[in-house]
Design a protein around this nucleic acid. Structure first.
Lengths: 334, 334
DNA sequence: TGCGCCTTTTATAACGTTTTAAGCATCGCA
DNA sequence: TGCGATGCTTAAAACGTTATAAAAGGCGCA
């Protein structure tokens, strides 16, 4: 009758005059428990506001009911970690799973925090971004049979669950758009070699180049991960060269701005003296340069999908590997 | 000798030939355990890679070792949730506390998720943002004696832990800067009445107005939370009126852009036909309009501080209420 | 009546920890 | 020799679950 502490199975059992075990199984909807009993127990449980103890469950069953998001503080501040998080948390809401967020630095020590989670059973599943072609996290989790969904693909032959934006289609569409506007030399700022989607973007660009015979350029001194000032300076420099690109594919909002301003230094105006197609993530670009062509990547949706995927995998370990390529969403002015 | 499953106290006990209880207390550095034994146990534990089971501990002690961040999906996508998250997770790293992120909609149902956490012991402490003058979350947590740190202050007399940016100083400094540039009518886009920092900003503006005798305007039809298009349209409209403001205080990056573009519609150029001081959060503005004056709010630092605060409060419940006003950081061009 | 066979319920034992109270030496001291 | 301290260790219980195995009750049927 301890009214102050929160109700447990025992509380419900005493009230309903049943054994703890019976209550437990009734709440689990075990068909071996009489229908009437189940209903009665459910009512009592609801009336006292019983909610199962996560720790006790976890201790007993070994299931943590936790999904771990590993996020890289280096890149996710200006990146899309936030929208991803919103998608993840909202989709996880009501699933019983908690999302715990752990920092980990993709470049320096990609594996250790994940190993820790796996070997010490800190979560039932893991989610991460910035996937590499031969990502050691993927390799490790696969060989340990630990559930995970990553944002981005790998080049492993063994299939695994992932969600990805169709960057190949993005780059191709962007390039074709630029070509349609009369661009003769197209430049794409790409992510570093270490990330898989660099290749996807490159393929998209190359396909367009091949089909149209236009010239192209891929900078080697900077990447999407470069400090924004570095991209700016590079753009400003190349704008002064005779073979400066007249069309840009910017797979990120910051890189677009840096390039637009770098060119601006030389008096070149976007939409007039050169063109650009940018990937839109936050949607802020439509405020800054409404006339610039963008293709939207819905990162929040990606988060929702990833959350649903991991929950499905955890509910049913036999669930087939889900692979989800988000189609591009063209938002060109006309 | 089960080599496959992870080591427990029992494992360590068997190896070292001691009782489980002894090992537990040795690892807790209980002085009642002989120094030599403690050392030996520590060595064995380390050698087998023992790491205590969170669930068992939580069940036994009642401490969840979880800090819950409630984030509002409505506002944190374009807001500063991400930087906050980075600050929180990095500062929590190694503290033993996990950060779990829960969505909750500040406007519609601010309290329910928090009540759930408190009454069902889902976390040891709570962190949230967008604090209201008489925030019901603060009231609830205070009367339940549940540890929390919020971003932003309240108007309650009872003190509580918070971390906040000095918005009063920001608004004052911004206004003075605008006045120094010759502005005659200063406008500040403020957050909705429901948020405490609206008043701080207003006080800062009013102080500058009083001291300098300049004219001012506070829009009533839009707030910082308005859709960016609404702000844009409002700016575009007011730019066409005879008493349009010639100086803007923008406590957010998006609002700055919306205003700058709204005025741009009428051919008014920022830095020439009107001036603005914006709060810089992501730092992106220095790319977009390098010449515009900004004052930086270091949200990541706020996150770090909040994390450290809550950990301190949890370690020592007697710890005084910590209140932390982040000073402004002027970054004016000259 | 007695036996087996359902259906429904329950006692018990774990899961890995911390804590309480008790145990066991050893020692000083009478 | 006995006896209380002292210093260290430990057995056992508890936290709230779930799973296993067994018990209880009712019913049909010989």
């Amino acid at each position: 009758m301890k009214t102050s502490s929160r109700p447990t199975l025992k509380t419900v059992a005493e009230i309903s005059g049943l054994a703890v075990a019976t209550v437990s199984r009734a709440l689990a909807n075990d068909p071996k428990i009489a229908e009437a009993t189940r209903a009665r127990v459910a009512k009592v449980a609801a009336s006292v506001g019983y909610v199962p103890d996560r720790a006790a469950r976890r201790l007993r069953t070994g299931k943590t009911m936790v999904v771990n998001l590993m996020l890289d503080p280096h890149f996710e501040i200006l990146g899309f970690g936030n929208a991803l998080l919103v998608g993840l948390t909202t989709a996880l809401e009501g699933s019983g799973y908690n999302l715990v967020v752990t920092p980990h630095f993709t470049d320096v020590d990609s594996l250790t925090p994940i190993q820790h989670i796996v070997t010490n059973r800190q979560a039932d599943g893991v989610i991460f971004t910035r996937t590499a072609p031969f990502d050691e996290r993927v390799r490790f989790l696969q060989e340990r049979g630990f559930p995970f969904v990553c944002h981005g693909r790998t080049e492993f032959t063994e299939p695994h669950a992932w969600v990805d934006f169709d960057n190949e289609a993005f780059a191709y569409a962007a390039a074709m758009r630029l070509i349609g506007k009369g661009c003769r030399r197209i430049c794409a700022v790409l992510p570093p070699e270490s990330l898989t989607f660099r290749q996807h973007l490159r393929y998209g660009l190359m396909r367009a180049v091949r089909e149209s015979g236009v010239d192209y350029h891929i900078p080697t001194s900077i990447t999407l991960d470069s400090p924004i000032d570095a991209i700016h300076d590079w753009a400003s420099h190349i704008a002064g060269t005779p073979d400066r690109p007249d069309g840009f594919i910017c797979p990120g909002e910051a890189s677009y701005l840096a390039i637009r301003n770098g060119y601006g230094h030389h008096g070149y105006k976007v939409g007039w003296d050169f063109h650009a197609v940018a990937k839109s993530i936050s949607g802020i670009l439509s405020q800054i340069d409404p006339e610039t062509d963008t293709i939207h990547e819905d990162v929040e949706a990606a988060g929702r999908i990833m959350a649903r995927r991991i929950v499905a995998m955890l509910a049913n370990p036999e669930a087939g590997l889900s692979q989800d390529l988000q189609p591009i969403d063209l938002r060109f002015a006309d």
